[in-house]
Design a protein around this nucleic acid. Structure first.
Lengths: 349, 349
DNA sequence: TTGAAAGCGCTAACAT
DNA sequence: ATGTTAGCGCTTTCAA
């Protein structure tokens, strides 16, 4: 005797067996209905659905994972919960993953690293079906990952470290250009840039440099190799403000750094936008606070998330499809931090 | 023939069978070693550990969950990813849950609600062993939850809606008092409070009122029944500033609202702390930004998280233990937003 | 279109 | 201290 159908017992949650016997069908049929398979008669399907409803049946993820060898879960690695740009990314991911029946779990690289854990390993131990990388872990953490990877927002990782990964990223170079052009259009000429470590920052810097060069101006970049925190933004901005002559506008590599730049301005007795204009990047909730009111490049993170999710689903469907590499077009969200300056619209060097 | 030991095949991940045969023991012995059971000889244990290492074996969570009927995972429900107070709470939770071998998954109530999902249900579908509530979902979502619940930071939920839940919360009443006393000590007399919906806000308000009354002053509260966003903070603060005579200090129900208050000040041409002092609550990353530099009540969220996790583990250990109700003592983090005011230290009504 | 039966990889009760 | 064995609740051939 191998099989021992569970009887509909009193205490325990109903199982597929209970549903089956209540609907007067076999367990297999219930399984088919659950997964929306086409070849089931309407009558049976109806009966099963009713039984499910009446019993309040909920399939066991563990059992289904064990039997099917897939968890229907995806791990999302973000950089730092304190930098709120990830919120929209997550919303976008879930908007398509949820309807598809996938669970998403999130980890914060900073937090994991701080406690000496390996977040990628953690996800693999959970047996996620796939990994979304919205951060840049050290390359050694990414050695032979046995599941598909989608890089979201950090295209640097794509070709180099993870040759097989799909990439859906914001066009950060374009974004850096947008920010700088906006300042140029406002009449600024001495525009400085505070950059930092990492792929996104590098692309944003490149965009800034391209726009400056195109306008016949010399790029002025600080913070290369440093971090991307508020403090880094502040010290970079101070450096720019202390140049002679000082800058009249600052492009920061992200919103948090832009907030740091605002602090630097105040320390020097200056105001944005009257004395110095400031532009951030990410269009995070931070930028929208009335007190900060930062003009910021909007990478359309929600769309990046949704597209990354679609890519991931497609990849799961077809593991051998050619690698996807999508760049989402950013836009500029204009706010008072680049409003009219003290000297009218025109800044001369 | 019922049993079919998996042979160590080429493609598939190693299983407990592979480890067992490699170590020359039975599967059960491996299982015992994995779970650190005491009664295993050192020799065997060593052999098993080596086999695990050599094979790169990773236990299957699905299988173990199915067999043991527990997932070793906990669901954490926070209110809103955009309000960064949760970061430390999470860090605290993980600091004790990780070593205990528990996985934590996080959901954002706002996000879930926005997409019409039921986050509690989502967690239950994942079969989390227990739920941590760091938010206040509508009561109907909390009807007969079949797993232990720990309320972290939102003690309002405790006795009322979830009579059986353990509670580990910040002493928000004490915190509101701390904030207000600080202002009183600075010489302020016309101190207004911007509150909002929800348990934490209610307790903080009560603390504010207590401190005011104790000082022989009339409490001045706005925003009751409204939200707790930056915009709510701003409009509440505007209301306080437009009183005649206007307030000289504002206690906000959280940091995000305090940032809103700063915006309100600027709209009225006022500055903090010179014209009006501002205190936030949560001591979130926001408060520490140089440009905001908010004095803020620190609820010790990390400690709350760690204590909540310990409580949870204890509850899992002993389901019938008496209900735990712990209040963590807050502290005040002093920053420039309550620095010396324009008129010296003394504010007369 | 539906059912029977054999596992998925592990745990736990029981034997030894 | 270690091995045997029967499931956990589902998926998935394979037959019918």
């Amino acid at each position: 005797m191998c099989a021992h159908p569970t009887s509909a017992s009193a205490r325990t949650r109903p199982t597929i067996y209970d549903v089956a016997s209540r609907a007067g069908v076999s367990k297999s049929l219930v399984s088919l209905v659950l997964r929306d398979e086409p070849h089931v008669s309407d009558a049976r399907r109806q009966a099963v659905l009713e039984a499910i409803e009446e019993l309040g049946y909920r399939p066991s993820r563990a059992a289904s994972a064990l039997a099917s060898q897939q968890t229907r879960s995806v791990g999302v690695l973000i950089d730092d919960f304190r930098n709120p740009w990830f919120v929209e990314l997550l919303a976008g991911l879930r908007s398509v993953l949820d309807p598809a029946g996938y669970t998403v779990s999130v980890a914060d690289l900073q937090l994991e690293a701080a406690s000496g854990r390996n977040p990628v390993d953690g996800f693999l131990a959970q047996h996620v079906d796939t990994l979304v990388l919205a951060a840049e872990p050290r390359a050694e953490l990414l050695r032979n990952i046995p599941v598909p990877v989608v890089v979201a927002g950090v295209r640097e990782l794509g070709p180099a470290v993870l040759p097989r990964a799909d990439v859906v990223a914001g066009d950060d170079e374009r974004g850096g250009e947008l920010a700088t052009r906006h300042l140029l259009d406002l009449g600024h000429r001495r525009i400085g840039h505070v950059t930092g470590r990492g792929g996104p920052a590098a692309h944003r810097r490149k965009g800034y440099e391209r726009a400056m060069t195109a306008a016949g101006l010399r790029p002025l970049v600080v913070g290369a190799g440093k971090g991307t925190s508020e403090q880094d933004g502040r010290s970079g901005a101070l450096e720019l403000l202390d140049r002679v002559p000082p800058v009249t506008a600052i492009v920061a590599a992200n919103d948090v750094m832009a907030v740091g730049a605002l602090a630097a301005l105040r320390e020097r007795g200056l105001k944005a936008p009257a004395d110095v204009a400031v532009v951030g990047y990410d269009n995070s909730p931070l930028a929208a606070y009335g007190y900060l009111a930062l003009t910021s490049v909007d990478p359309h993170s929600r769309e990046i998330g949704a597209e990354a999710a679609r890519t991931l689903l497609a990849r799961l469907e077809n593991p051998d499809a050619p690698r996807r590499y999508a760049l989402i077009e950013p836009a500029l969200a204009t706010r008072p931090s680049t409003g009219p300056s003290r000297n009218g619209q025109i800044h001369e060097p």
